[in-house]
Design a protein around this nucleic acid. Structure first.
Lengths: 164, 164
DNA sequence: AACAATATTTGACGAAGTCCAGAATCGGGC
DNA sequence: GCCCGATTCTGGACTTCGTCAAATATTGTT
């Protein structure tokens, strides 16, 4: 969505039938400012902004915003759930296996790409989720470790903070 | 992989440089028999077959088999990690939001589809993971509940056993 | 049969998230 | 301005999925 017209966040909430509260505004802002944040990240940021919020409050707030279509939730394997405010457009994600950095990518195909598998097997499909796994530029530069070691890393040992 | 020639599973392990043990054979068989199983499912099945196995044993075994390329691991959001024995071909998955049933789908594109996003942003991509979300034929038939209710279900309340 | 390397078991532990339930607070319609 | 229902807070218990480390057992080989 990423409003371009200066639509008051509060107004935005109302439009979506969400009661306006300081917590929700702060949560929305936290995610908009920097997408791909985890619930924990959001809690931290919100606390810095409005002083305090309970863990439950964060989960509640995020849940409502997702339900009402203001936020989108996605969860790369081995990482906690992340939130973003780009909704509606069906874009994808590119995740670094070693540092966990996540960036958006538009799909090569049209507007609602990947929504049509070769054979839908009778399913009614509503979303096609695509995650590309690889190594980000920084990590490629750093440790030359190509692929030699057959470590069973997969979850990238998500070292807090290695995101975006 | 799904061997067609009657290749002894034990032989298969050896070929991949994996020491042969009862646990590993049972794990491999459990996954081959019915792909998309979770570690827990595997543990259950293996126990039924060889009497007992520790939880750690299951994770270790699965880990080794994945590392050595005998199994593939994937993890749909909101569900525990699942394993399958179709490796090498880059196929995708179709997951039912309400019952969690998961089926394979071949990609519309060529051999290694979806490995080339519009813009790779400097990443070195090694895997493109695609998951289609929707409702399986059974669930469509059952509860006519279209989309009315704005329940915050997303994790499909994974009711044990609702798989494949 | 014995040995060293490799696997497995055992039990504790950690992260992420959910659930609960009562009390306090706040938003917005009247 | 008031009031009621919606929202948040507190804060702990609990679940699920998974990992760590030390002790024990097994494999395959000599």
């Amino acid at each position: 969505m990423s409003v371009q017209l200066p639509v008051e966040p509060a107004e935005l909430l109302r439009r979506h039938g969400v009661q306006v509260t300081a917590q929700r505004l702060a949560i929305l802002r936290a995610v908009s400012d920097r997408p791909h944040r985890t619930a924990d990240d959001v809690a931290e940021v919100v606390r810095a902004e409005i002083g305090a919020i309970s863990r439950q409050g964060v989960y509640d707030g995020l849940g409502v915003l997702v339900d009402k279509g203001l936020l989108r939730r996605f969860q790369p394997a081995g990482s906690p759930t992340r939130y973003e405010d780009r909704v509606g457009d069906n874009h994808h994600h590119l995740v670094c296996r070693s540092c966990g950095q996540t960036v958006d990518v538009d799909c090569a195909v049209g507007t609602s790409p990947c929504l049509h598998p070769a054979n839908d097997q009778g399913y009614e499909i509503d979303e096609g989720e695509v995650i590309y796994w690889g190594r980000c530029p920084d990590c490629r530069k750093g440790a030359g470790d190509g692929r030699t070691r057959q470590s069973n890393r997969k979850s990238a040992t998500s070292t807090r903070g290695g995101e975006q």
